[in-house]
């Protein structure tokens, strides 16, 4: 089951770190970083069903 309730300790710290990652990068570099990050996280989750749920959740409800 995809966790959609708050689950990250230090939410503000994580968010700042995510933005720092993209600091002083071109749009192209940022896109590549995001893609690598998605792939790393997806592999860590591993559960095929959870990944499908995340893909669906990312689309947002209409």
């Amino acid at each position: 089951m995809l966790i959609t309730t708050p689950n990250i300790p230090d939410a503000d710290g994580f968010y700042a770190e995510l933005l720092d990652l993209h600091e002083s990068h071109t749009k192209e570099e940022s896109d590549a970083l995001n893609a690598r990050l998605v792939l790393l996280l997806a592999n860590h989750i591993g559960d095929r069903k959870v990944l499908s749920e995340a893909i669906t959740a990312a689309k947002l409800k209409k």
């Binding site: 893609a35 690598r36 592999n43």
Partner: peptide, 17 residues
């Protein structure tokens, strides 16, 4: 292409990709 290249870049350092 962004995802394809990300997979190839990661594959060099990480087996999972």
């Amino acid at each position: 292409r962004i995802f394809r290249d990300a997979v190839l870049d990661l594959a060099e350092q990480h087996e999972f990709a």
